[in-house]
Design a protein around this nucleic acid. Structure first.
Length: 509
RNA sequence: GGUCCCUUCGUCUAGUGGCCUAGGACGCCGGGUUUUCAUCCCGGUAACAGGGGUUCAAGUCCCCUAGGGACUACCA
């Protein structure tokens, strides 16, 4: 494939949600796979929906995930500017061209008038549509005389430009995901192309920019499928049929359960993020969780998202960005919507957490420990991490899995007491504490020998003693090899914990 | 309501007419390893939406029905 140029064209109306991130990812993978360009274009033609910080959020999110843009943003590029509000002047001439060729017309109906019409239609259980059936009854340059039209424009009356949807034409196009798709123009309406505020709508701006920026493929969400025939018609009307991009409409990401596509609310309700980065609404101050802040690794989110609506056709599940670039293909994109599965997302993260070196994880963990006012030697923390990381999904889980390395247990798990503590090991524990206390060398092997010898010399049960000991040292029944834990926390603490446990615990459960 | 898109285990999916008594992964259940938990290993659970065709042969092609989804703004 030659000269692949694809874009990610978000609207800065709020934080980017993972559906948008996946669209960006697929565009990026496609571009890199074919040695093409992936550019970012900001579609901010609606000033009323502008949200402060949204554009930076989009750029930061892509950066975090390792989705590199080669044009747009602060990079600029040969086809800039890449922000539609900065391109305002460009669109006018194409609107005029459409007007001159009869593909577009002036419409004077106010938003209020149209609103009222929609409501009236609704009462009769019908849907109002500004189309070939209704346009002659409305106020536009098609229904009005030339003089009247000129007069209204001259008097400064507000107007929009609408596309004149042609009569009874079958618009066909090939979608790279869905193959042949077709619409009859009789079912389509006369969409607004140019708003009364002088800005184009998405449809016009998008087509003009994709053409001017030499876009080879339009890879976007399925929600755009119904407006694609309009876009195709626009390319034709503008005389750009020969350089029309190829379309690929990606399946939507659906809620984990229930109906509909994934929304902001689902995340809050079901306890998983729908945004890559945490977002604080600049107006309400409301905070929405992000994958990054929740402890997901960027490579993990990339892998999760890549497998939503796509798969390599092999049984390999873990892919780095480079590997994805290598195997990615639009032909492998699914047609049906994909439900997001938070459990599988965790499984991916667990995998990637284990892939990280103990050293890296220790750095991340030390930050969390500091928040708890625990200051520790890096070597110590690294060792702790190596001992417990396979039990964690997120870095923050490390604490629950290893708190006992940093502080004595505050309480003893009731269930574990009920299961293992019958009181009869009390004497054994105290004796072991004494023996341990006399040890000069507190190495794992030494203490293990000592405890095992004590158990066999006194005809005690291995499980019972060890579990009681674990209860005393850890507070519950989890964790790595017990004598390794003892070596880490040291003789003084180990002995103290056992004695304290014997003091605190009731003789019988 | 109208238009369009979609439909394989609970979920993500393999499957491009015979290799499918439908494979993998997550989850769940059971077993093994372990002093414990987790990891790990082994095993199990569970699906071609329904009905008609076409064909020697259909999960795979066609039609209908049902269900799901998107769109239906001077939003993108």
């Amino acid at each position: 494939m030659n000269n692949v140029r694809v874009r990610f064209a978000p609207s800065p109306t709020g934080p980017l949600h993972i559906g948008g991130v996946r669209t960006a990812l697929f565009n990026y993978l496609f571009a890199r796979k074919h040695g093409g360009v992936f550019y970012l274009r900001i579609e901010d033609t609606d000033q009323s929906r502008f949200v402060l910080g949204a554009e930076d959020y989009i750029i930061d999110s892509l950066k975090w995930l390792g989705i590199e843009i080669s044009e747009g943003g602060s990079l600029g590029g040969p086809y800039g500017p890449y922000r539609q509000s900065d391109r305002k002047a460009i669109y006018k001439q194409y609107a005029d061209q459409l007007l001159a060729s009869g593909s577009a017309y002036y419409a004077f109906d106010s938003a209020e008038e149209l609103d009222k019409l929609r409501k009236d239609y609704e009462i009769d259980k019908k849907t109002f549509s500004y189309d070939l059936h209704t346009r002659m009854q409305l106020n536009n340059s098609l229904s009005l005389s030339k003089e009247e039209t000129q007069k209204r424009i001259a008097s400064g009356e507000h107007y929009v430009l609408r596309f004149k949807m042609p009569d009874n034409i079958d618009v066909r196009f090939k979608d790279m995901v869905r193959d042949d798709v077709h619409f009859n123009t009789n079912t389509l309406d006369d969409k607004v192309l140019f708003k009364s505020d002088g800005m184009p709508t998405y449809h016009l701006a998008n087509v003009v920019d994709d053409y001017l920026m030499k876009t080879s493929h339009v890879i976007r969400g399925e929600e755009w499928l119904p407006s694609t025939p309009l876009h195709v018609l626009l390319y034709i009307a503008l005389g750009w049929e020969g350089s029309m991009p190829q379309f690929a409409h990606l399946p939507l990401i659906l809620k984990p359960s229930g109906q509909g596509k994934l929304s902001k609310r689902d995340g809050d309700k079901m306890g998983f993020p729908v945004f890559p980065l945490q977002w604080k609404d600049p107006v309400t101050g409301e905070v929405s969780a992000g994958y990054r802040e929740s402890g997901y690794f960027p490579e993990s989110l990339v892998n999760i998202l890549a497998f939503l609506g796509w798969n390599p056709g092999s049984e390999k599940e873990f892919f780095s960005m480079a590997e994805l670039v290598d195997v990615f293909s639009l032909e492998k994109v699914q047609k049906a919507g994909a439900r997001f599965d938070p459990e599988k997302a965790k499984w991916f993260n667990h995998h990637y957490l284990k892939q990280h070196s103990d050293d890296e994880l220790a750095d991340a963990y030390i930050i969390l420990l500091k928040e708890r006012n625990i200051v520790c030697d890096k070597a110590f923390v690294t060792k702790v991490v190596s001992m417990v990381k396979e039990r964690a999904v997120f870095v923050k889980d490390l604490w629950d899995q290893s708190y006992y390395f940093f502080e004595a247990p505050l309480r003893y798990d009731e269930k574990v007491i009920a299961k293992y503590w019958k009181g009869q090991a009390l004497e054994a524990l105290l004796s072991i504490a004494d023996l341990l206390n006399n040890l000069a060398d507190f190495k794992n092997e030494t203490t293990e020998d000592l405890i095992k010898n004590y158990i066999s010399n006194n005809n005690l049960g291995m499980g019972q003693v060890m579990n009681s000991l674990r209860l005393a040292l850890v507070g519950t029944s989890m964790g790595p090899h017990l004598t390794e834990i003892m070596e880490m926390i040291g003789k003084g603490d180990a002995v103290k914990r056992i004695r304290k446990f014997c003091d605190t615990i009731p003789l019988t459960a």
